[in-house]
């Protein structure tokens, strides 16, 4: 187990290293000059040169990378080019906000998706299944900006129940933020819901088709016991991995959703950074997203290993 963790952590480190190189080098392909960009078209040559010096832009590329990477590891993520404020506290605060939103969304779509998936599997090829499958496929396919705007049209503008705009104060706590979280959370959830429902359905169908479920039924066990103890215990195991893989999707969904609702999360910050060409912000934000994604996958693998006797106990 310890060795396994070590190897997985090693791989995550490698991933982050390569991802950082990719992100760093992509952002270096920028047409035009960063200093020029920051100072605008009418800046003087001298001012630009000074800024270049200040930002280390005259150094060779690999030195620039090493400086940046060393800074990132030690917590010095540089200053925003736009606001001239340190990037790190800003990113971490927004990360917290995104986590809040993601948390609410996960609480909605994971249980609901599992329930729908199991129902669809039990009613396989009959109407409930066809309905759930069609709806979940539609949900998976609908971009968040479409569902988000639709929800705003209905619940904010039409019915006036919930705020259309979620641009809360970035430092708000959960209770203050909650009313503003509902619509964006539902928006993000719909995609995840369809995804979890489909995966749970196929996982459950696989289990329902096994000999050991037939055996359990023919042991004369009550139907509820067969479902709860024999089917679900096996069918929900892969869902752990599915939920983790869905995190990547969730992160993408957050970028769009936060933009739709103006919610001050990491995704909104990244879009903002890109629109303003704020290089340090983009680099740090992207790295954090990659790290979160990698770690959640690791967590899922460990949980899966602990829940699955075949892996936990070995041969």
């Amino acid at each position: 187990m310890a060795l396994y963790l070590l190897r997985r952590l090693g791989f995550i480190f490698l991933t982050l290293l390569l991802a950082s190189i990719i992100i760093f080098s992509i952002t270096q392909f920028l047409p035009g000059d960063v200093a020029q960009m920051v100072l605008g078209q009418f800046a003087t040559e001298v001012a630009i040169e000074n800024l270049r010096e200040e930002l280390g832009l005259n150094l060779p590329l690999h030195i620039q990378y090493l400086n940046w990477a060393a800074g990132f590891i030690t917590g010095d993520w540089g200053d925003s080019l736009v606001s001239r404020m340190p990037v790190q506290p800003m990113v971490m605060q927004r990360l917290g906000n995104s986590a809040m939103l993601a948390g609410v969304a996960i609480m909605i779509y994971v249980p609901l998706g599992i329930a729908l998936g199991v129902i669809a599997a039990l009613k396989r090829d009959r109407y409930p299944d066809q309905a759930i499958t069609a709806v979940s496929m539609a949900f998976v396919g609908l971009p968040e900006f479409v569902t988000g705007l639709l929800l705003i049209a209905i619940f904010a503008i039409g019915l006036g129940w919930l705020p259309a705009n979620s641009s809360i104060d970035p430092g708000s706590n959960f209770v203050q933020a909650f009313p503003y979280l509902i619509l964006p959370a539902i928006t993000v959830s719909l995609t995840g819901l369809g995804y979890i429902a489909r995966m749970t359905r196929s996982g459950t169908i696989d289990v329902l088709d096994t000999d050991y479920i037939r055996a359990a039924e023919l042991k004369g066990l009550p139907a509820a016991q067969v479902l709860l103890r024999h089917v679900l215990r096996n069918a929900l195991l892969p869902t752990v991995t599915v939920v983790a893989m869905g995190i990547g999707w969730l992160l993408g969904g957050l970028i769009v959703t936060e933009t739709v609702f103006g919610y001050p999360g990491l995704g909104r910050l990244l879009v903002y950074g890109i629109q303003r060409r704020d290089l340090p912000l983009i680099q740090a934000g992207s790295m954090i997203v990659v790290a979160v994604y990698s770690l959640s996958n690791l967590a899922a693998d460990i949980i899966y290993g602990l829940l699955n006797p075949r892996i936990r106990l070995g041969r």
């Binding site: 096994t210 000999d211 050991y212 103890r229 024999h230 215990r233 096996n234 699955n308 006797p309």
Partner: peptide
């Protein structure tokens, strides 16, 4: 197939 007829997680 006894390998398939016994529930793997109980």
């Amino acid at each position: 197939d006894p390998g398939a007829a016994v529930n793997p997680s109980i």
